[in-house]
Amino acid sequence: MGALPAFILTGLIAIAGGTAALAGATDVTVGFVAFGAYLGPHVAFAGGVAAAGYACKTKKLGSGTDILSSLYGTGDPMTLLVGGIFGLAGMLIYQFFAAINLPSDWPGTTVVILAVITRLMFGSTGLTGKYEGEGRREYFTGGKGFFCNVVLGLGIGAAVGFVSAQMLNVGTDPALMRSFPIVCFGIAAASLIFTQTGFACPATHHIAYPAACAAVWSGNPVMGVIFGILGAVVGDFILKTFNSHCDTHIDPPATTIMILMFAVTILFA
């Protein structure tokens, strides 16, 4: 179905499972469906990214950065098999990270690793792309765009941070609040359905998820604001550095989550 459509489904299941767990129900859909072998980003999204890279290299897709198109539409069994092989590799890498208890986000880190492998195997632009424009290459969005990113991160970070504080103030069990970041992630991921359908909706899961984790794990909503802004700024840098002027997709949100969740885990877990 393509990388982004699969990820949108991940978000929908994360909302359902995370909300159930937040309400005190026993939930297994988050671990086994949303972040498991069914729709886990390290399986479904990463597999879709690899399949797109392969399909472009074999002239069956216009761009290896196309994460919106269904790879079934290529009519090529090998494209589907490449996606499946990378999905299997994603599950194995994830299990390894779980075994060593990697101090970061396991699905996000796996997505990054497989995206780099995809670029090296099927791309030709190198990890940072091939800039062929005039003037100096931009590594951050400048002008009003930079401030838009800061405002976006500030707004989402404040929302998740202070909503988490309100929930604790009304007596929500702190143990149940561990599911709150999953709900925030799910809402952000599901909102990409608007991107899929052609609207200028930004990716925000790399902002909402680390911000919510920072706020909940630290017990301080201000940390949500700080990590919200960091998510927006770091994500912009990753986009400009690794996912511009290139021919395969290295996911800026997953890379940002990998970096920030390492910091959040070290500081607050």
Rank of each mutant, 00 (worst) to 15 (best):
E132D: 02
E132R: 02
E134Q: 10
E134I: 03
R136L: 05
R136Q: 07
R136I: 00
R137D: 00
Y139G: 02
Y139K: 02
F140R: 02
G142N: 09
G142A: 14
G142E: 12
G143E: 06
K144Q: 08
K144M: 09
G145V: 00
F146W: 12
F147S: 09
F147W: 15
C148R: 14
C148H: 11
C148D: 13
C148L: 13
C148Y: 09
N149D: 14
V150P: 00
V150C: 07
V151C: 10
V151S: 13
V151T: 12
V151H: 00
V151L: 15
G153H: 04
G153Y: 04
G153M: 05
G153S: 05
L154S: 08
L154C: 10
L154Q: 08
G155N: 06
I156Y: 06
I156H: 07
A159I: 13
V160Y: 04
V160N: 07
V160I: 05
G161N: 11
G161Q: 10
G161L: 09
F162T: 07
V163F: 14
V163T: 15
V163D: 04
S164A: 15
A165C: 04
A165H: 10
Q166S: 14
Q166H: 08
Q166V: 09
M167S: 05
M167I: 08
M167C: 05
L168Y: 03
N169M: 11
V170W: 08
G171K: 13
G171W: 13
T172M: 15
T172D: 01
A175N: 12
A175V: 11
A175G: 06
A175Y: 07
L176T: 06
L176R: 15
R178K: 15
R178H: 10
R178Y: 06
S179P: 00
S179D: 12
F180A: 10
F180E: 07
P181D: 08
P181W: 12
V183E: 10
V183W: 10
V183K: 12
G186V: 01
G186W: 03
I187K: 11
A188S: 15
A188M: 08
